[in-house]
Design a protein around this nucleic acid. Structure first.
Lengths: 250, 250
DNA sequence: CTATGTGAAGGGGTTCACAGCC
DNA sequence: GGCTGTGAACCCCTTCACATAG
């Protein structure tokens, strides 16, 4: 599972017109936890489609997505009733509905700032360019990188950021620079008009309200694993120490 | 209090062995959400220490970590009382206590399987080798990669996995192979004795109970951003449409 | 008087179990 | 009969507010 999914925006504009009646809201608000799983369902559906499966039950889709079926059905219920009782879901139809809800029926232009080892890997990552995103520019502040071609794109100077964002209507930026430079890059991105940032630098970013930041942090993930690994080791020791403790031994 | 003993599963799978008995002392159980933030606090503390700050309040540390102070204090309270009322926290002391709780007072050996663009970036990532982890081997199934040196380590055949894991006592593995190969790699890792996996492949992994899997998925993160970005656009349109904000439209 | 540590209240998310429809 | 869609119970996490200690 992805890291804790708190963190996201402050955009929290209460769109709640609410007052008075139960009038249908313009946009249902989907729980954040559900939003984080929709892409997983979409991928599972794509995988089923590739195997020429046209229809599936909530149980099957849930298994493919790695969740339980109750959760899957509850999640899908926030989008609407796209299944057929007693039958299941049409793979293509549900795929489209989820893609539409996420907003990836058309491609989003994305820029990557920081073309070091990680930035190059991201630029080459096919998943980027396939599922709803198109890398339109690579930027780096270091002169040696500039002008080189990575993944078919020329690396351009960081100073061109604002110009590119405006020209290509970019609203999503990826930061893969060292931690010390991350805040400056974020500031420049926000100033240029970007309102969603995916941050790979191990640094806390300060951004104004209305800008979303998601963080991917390798060493944090490893440390979380280490914590549980430590406990496993401790438990094993304990079990050896006082062999019993558990009644089921019989 | 001794809440349910139910071992929660951290990540996707891993229904831990329901260790019975209500022994509470051995290891207090720290909420998963808190565990996920401890590494963030540790990094913030390290950052403070580098600036020669020896003491800090919960407010200062919380700001550095990007959370609010109430949450920080609550989190730290699960570890014990390591602060001084009316004063704050000693940076070095608290750092050590958190590192000890996470289990990163000594380095964990890690192997990386799949030395493509991403694998090479991970191997070169200094954060890996600094904060409690040491990359001991790089493996790849493709002959052309084998024997090459990446980040000072020779790339070895995937077939050597079990041997290396045993020799180096590896319990944490990183998967950076294409999605189609990920499950096979995971199976081999588990068979070799690895019990924690960090998965970069866009695939759902099935692992037996007791094995932890954490997933880092680039396109999922982007899609979550896209969802919010779509809504921002929709809201902006709306605002333009019916210029009035609230209006009961009498 | 200051800032930590913590019961208690409040909100979300997951799970259950069944009503509703095919 | 089977499977979806969903209210309700349950549980965890966050936030508040203050007792507590220096």
């Amino acid at each position: 599972m992805a890291p804790a999914l708190k963190e996201q925006s402050v955009t929290a504009r209460s769109t709640n017109t609410g007052e008075g009646s139960g009038a249908q809201d313009p946009h249902r608000d989907i729980p954040e936890a559900t939003v984080a799983r929709l892409p997983v369902y979409l991928r599972a559906l794509t995988s089923l489609a590739e195997r020429n499966i046209v229809s599936c039950s909530s149980e099957e889709l849930a298994t493919a997505a790695g969740v339980n079926s109750a959760k899957l059905r509850k999640d899908l219920s926030y989008l609407g009733s796209y299944g057929t009782r007693g039958v299941g879901y049409d793979v293509d139809y549900l795929s489209y509905q989820i893609a539409r809800e996420i907003g990836v029926t058309h491609d989003w232009p994305v820029i990557i700032v920081g073309i070091g080892n990680l930035g190059q890997a991201l630029a080459n990552f096919s998943g980027f360019s396939s599922r709803g995103f198109r890398t339109v520019a690579l930027l780096d502040a270091a002169a040696p990188m500039q002008g080189r071609t990575v993944a078919g794109l020329e690396v351009r100077p960081f100073a061109d950021l604002a110009e590119i964002v405006a020209a290509e209507q970019v609203s999503i930026g990826v930061i893969s620079v060292p931690a010390t430079a991350a805040q400056d890059v974020a500031d420049a991105m926000v100033a240029a008009g970007i309102s969603s940032i995916l941050n790979f630098a191990p640094a806390v970013l300060n951004v104004p309200p209305g800008v979303d930041v998601r963080k991917v942090d390798l060493s944090i993930e490893l440390q979380i694993l280490a914590y549980h690994e430590s406990r496993k080791a401790a438990e094993a020791d304990e079990t050896v120490d006082n062999g019993s403790e558990e009644g089921i031994t019989a």
